[in-house]
C-alpha cells in the first residue's frame, strides 16, 4: 500500500507554480473551473491508486476545515 506523499516532491517548485498560473491566464472563472476539473481527473488517473486518491481527497478537505 502506498501512502500519500505530502513531502516536497516537485523539482523546481516555483516554475511549476508559475506554469499552473499561466495556463489559467485570460480564462473566465467558468473556463478555469473546467480546466481545474480536467487537470484533477488527469492527475488522479496518473496516480491511480485508490487509497492514495482517498487520502488526497480527505487531505484536501481537511486543509480547508471542511472535512465531513
Amino acid at each position: 500500500m502506498a501512502d500519500l506523499n505530502t513531502r516536497p516532491n516537485i523539482s523546481d517548485a516555483d516554475s511549476f507554480y508559475a506554469e499552473l498560473m499561466a495556463v489559467h491566464d485570460g480564462l473566465t472563472k467558468t473556463q478555469s473551473d473546467a480546466l481545474n476539473a480536467r487537470l484533477i481527473l488527469l492527475l488522479a488517473n496518473h496516480v491511480g491508486d485508490r487509497e492514495v486518491l482517498s487520502a488526497a481527497l480527505s487531505a484536501a478537505a481537511r486543509a480547508a476545515g471542511v472535512e465531513r
Binding site: D33, A34, N36, I40, L41
Partner: peptide, 8 residues
C-alpha cells in the same frame, strides 16, 4: 464542471 470535464 467535473461531468463536462470527463466528457471533454
Amino acid at each position: 464542471a467535473f461531468r463536462d470535464a470527463v466528457l471533454d
